[in-house]
């Protein structure tokens, strides 16, 4: 009896320890976000009277959000709209061109295929830092500064994305495709009606990834757009951080709203994203 208790006791204790660690780590991850959330509803002075024991606002107020909407120098909602337009169109374009290329690399034989593939993979190994300045020179020479083009185009083609789609397409069965080819279906037709409908998860994973990359980008927009019409939301947050140094609730409110689309998108597609991570973690 006692020995059985002992034997059961150890894994039980280990499990308790694991649970405690898990709870602490999860708190570490989530608390800063919750703290931002509640603080952005606090009145100016209360924000800086940090006291996690008085976690919730003594009075929920929306003044910080109103301040954002009223700011004329750095219009918040204008930036949100512009960022949404850029991120959504870039994500859609990005999965279109990358998956199409991936299909060709995975399923069609053509001259110089190996060479072009190697070149594509090579581009993965060029750090952004190295080509930051000359990328600016290129878009400047093309006359693209201060436009949606300069925000959208440079990040569209992604060797990583092509690589990911190609891996998925390589594993799809040959039979259906061959039958369709014999029936005279075009490659584009096959791609659209057989491959795309059966590749939901890579599309979701890469689409979400592209959206997040664009939505969260700061350095490239800061270098290339100054016109209010094109300014991205992270640039605006950066400006608020300077302007509202004495009214931190406003900065937090802006950050909260700017963080919502990525978080919501992740929560909607988390099943796919976590699965995608599992795949890339094993490769």
């Amino acid at each position: 009896m006692q020995s059985e208790l002992k034997r059961r006791g150890r894994p039980h204790r280990a499990r308790t320890a694991f649970t405690v660690i898990a709870v602490i780590v999860t708190l570490f991850s989530v608390f800063p976000l919750l703290w931002m959330f509640v603080s952005s509803f606090k009145e100016g002075k209360e924000v800086l009277r940090a006291n996690p024991l008085r976690f919730f606002p003594s009075q929920w107020i929306t003044a910080n959000f109103q301040k954002l909407a009223e700011d004329r120098t750095y219009p918040f909602w204008q930036a949100m709209r512009s960022t949404a337009f850029v991120s959504v169109s870039a994500a859609l374009l990005s999965i279109s061109i990358n998956s199409m290329a991936a299909y060709a690399y995975a399923r069609i034989e053509f001259t110089f295929k190996t060479l072009l593939w190697r070149l594509t993979v090579l581009s993965m190994y060029i750090p952004g830092l190295t080509i930051l300045v000359t990328s600016f020179v290129v878009v400047n020479n093309l006359g693209l500064l201060d436009s949606y083009w300069v925000l959208i185009l440079p990040g569209l083609a992604s060797a990583y994305s092509i690589f990911f789609f190609r891996q998925f397409f390589l594993n799809m069965p040959m039979a259906v495709e061959e039958a369709a080819l014999i029936d005279g279906a075009s490659r584009f037709r096959i791609f659209y009606s057989i491959f795309i409908p059966n590749a939901k998860s890579p599309y979701v994973i890469m689409g979400t990834g592209a959206f997040l990359g664009y939505w969260n980008s700061f350095l490239w927009p800061a270098m290339t757009v100054t016109n209010q019409k094109y300014v991205q939301v992270m640039q605006v947050i950066r400006s608020y951080n300077n302007v509202y140094a004495n009214n931190y609730g406003v900065v937090l409110a802006g950050s909260l709203l700017a963080a919502l689309p990525p978080v919501l998108l992740f929560l909607v597609f988390q099943r796919y994203i976590v699965k995608g991570l599992m795949i890339s973690g094993i490769k």
Binding site: V25, S39, L212, S217, F266, I273, V274
Partner: peptide, 21 residues
């Protein structure tokens, strides 16, 4: 899910949060 949420937050927003902390 919980530990992955910070991963989708931008560096700019994370900076705001931790400047505050």
């Amino acid at each position: 899910t919980a530990i992955y949420v910070p991963t989708v937050i931008s560096g700019v927003v994370a900076s705001v949060i931790f400047l505050f902390i």
